[in-house]
Structures are given as structure tokens and as C-alpha cells.
Amino acid sequence: MLRKNGGRNQLRANLIFIAIGIVLFLVSNRVDELRVYQGATVAVYVVAISSIILLTGYSGQISLGHGALMAVGGYAAVLSRNDWHAPVWLSFVVAVLAAALFGAILGVAAGRLSGPYLAGTTLALAVGLPSLANQFSVLGGEQGLNYDVGQPPLSLGQDFTQYHWYFWIAGLAALVMTWLVHNVLGSRYGRNWRAARSNPTAAALAGIHIGRSKILAFTISAGIAGLAGALLAMTLSLVTPSAFPLALSFAIVTGAVLAGVTLLTGSIVGAVVLVAIPELTDALATHLGGSERVTANLPGLMMSALLIVSVLFFPNGPRLFRR
């Protein structure tokens, strides 16, 4: 799949990203606080889902443990900020690097594993890793650690709230990350991953080092997940083991599948769905006069049902976005 006039496409894509960014920032000033906060959460999910799209949709590997990698990123960001007083942007960089390093180690094992083995191994990670934080006092145990990205600069005006600030940071990070991932996927590496996924033997004959290419994909994907973890820690203003439950790992895989794992632009759709489902089920539960039991479980029910339906009936993603 060689792209002709790739240069013009590239320019158009960049312009679209910039336009989306401007629209988002303008909209954020016109809606209420809750929506802004949800917007920040959508941005966090966009970053997390794009890491799965890169890994699963392009490199053909699966991870049920990206919640754990997000935890690595979140804790790294918090520790670097609290202990070394790193500026916010630097703590994000530290998050990306820490998670990428962790992902590289994992990727060495992952590159040699096929589907179900990899799924099981990463699942083990998602179940066990966050709870490790309880056992080291430096990680703050069950209470976790506070993460303070500071007040928004005064130059943005008096009524510019903390949530707006979160949204701006997360939204900018999501845009930059999506743009970067878009470029990586269009690069030599992206093509290598797709070749190695669809026909490993042919790809190897064409000179692609399958193992190395898989490890690289896992490392990059882990780094992106690390950033998502740091952003999540920011919106929660703390990190705790319970902020990165197994359900988080499942949620981002669900978002990626709903987005049709091979399409980066689907990440925004998946992210919006992930944020919208609890909102919808809350409304539904109140409408039904439901107890706390209903409110707690309806989102999971909806999400799992959507996941099953989409994998059974739309295995290639919603027809709407298919190219």
C-alpha cells in the first residue's frame, strides 16, 4: 500500500489536527465544569487507546496489561515530581521513559509469544502489578501519593478553573501524541509492523527483523500508555493502586476494539464511548430508580455487551469508519 502524494496527505492531516485542537480549546470555554472534566478524561483515553491501536491494530500483539503500564507511568510521574521537584512536562517525559523501559523488558518476552500466551502474561501483570504498590512505603500504599500539577497561570484569567487547566494539558498531550503516532504508523516502522502482522514469513524474507520490530512496537506502545497514566494521575490529582484496576486495562482494549483497532482516528470515538457509557447508565439507573448495586454494575454490563457484539458482528470495526 504505497501512498502517492504522501506529502500533501501529510500536510492535510497536520492541518486537521491543528483545526481539531483550536475547536476543542474554544469549545472548552463554553461548557460547564463536569463536561470539561469529562473532556479531560476523553483525552486521557484517546492517548491510552492509541497505544493499543498501535500495538494490536498494527503490530498484531495484544495486551491486557496496559493498565499496569499506565500505573508505571503514573507512579513515575508522581515520584519524579514529588521527590525531584521536576516540572510538570518533565514528569510526563519521565512517565513515558519509565513505562517504555518497562515495556521494552516486557516486549523482549512478548515478542516471542503468540496471542493467548501474550494475553495471559499481560493479564497477570494487570492483576498483580498495581497491588505491588501496597507493599512499598515509598509508593504510598493504599492511600497513594498526591500529584499536583499546580494552578493554571494567572494570565489565563480569573475564571479559568483547575479542570480547564487539566483539559488543556490532557487535550494538548492527546493531540501531540495522536499526531506523533499517526506519523510513526505512516513511517517505515508502521509499514514493517503491518507487514510482520499480515505475513510474518514474507516480511522476514523482505528483510524485516520480526522480533525486533515487535519489541519496538511494544516499547513505543508502553511509552504512550505511560503518558496516559501520568495524565490520568493528573486528572485524579493522585495515584493509588485502585486507580489502575483490571477494569481499566479492559476498558482501553474495549475502546480500541470499538474504534476498530486499525484506525487511529477511531480512538476519539472509542474514548467518547468509554466516557459516555457510565454517564448513560447512570441516567438509566436513576430513571429505573435503581439501587447502588445497579449503578455500580450497569456500566460494566453495557461495556462488556458492546465488546462481545462488536467482536462478533463488526470484527473490522464500525462500517462507518472503514476505509
Binding site: I62, P116, S304
Partner: peptide
């Protein structure tokens, strides 16, 4: 593209579904 991971996704979805039903 999903074929290779479809079994993982489907059983994972089922795990979530059963867990939610049990919780309900």
C-alpha cells in the same frame, strides 16, 4: 485484523459480562 485476538476479546467480554451480572 481482529481475527487473531477475537477469542481473547470475546472471552474477556464474557468475563466482564458475567461479573457485572453477578454484581447486579
Amino acid at each position: 485484523p481482529v481475527a487473531a485476538i477475537a477469542p481473547v476479546i470475546a472471552t474477556l467480554g464474557l468475563l466482564g459480562l458475567i461479573r457485572a451480572v453477578v454484581g447486579l
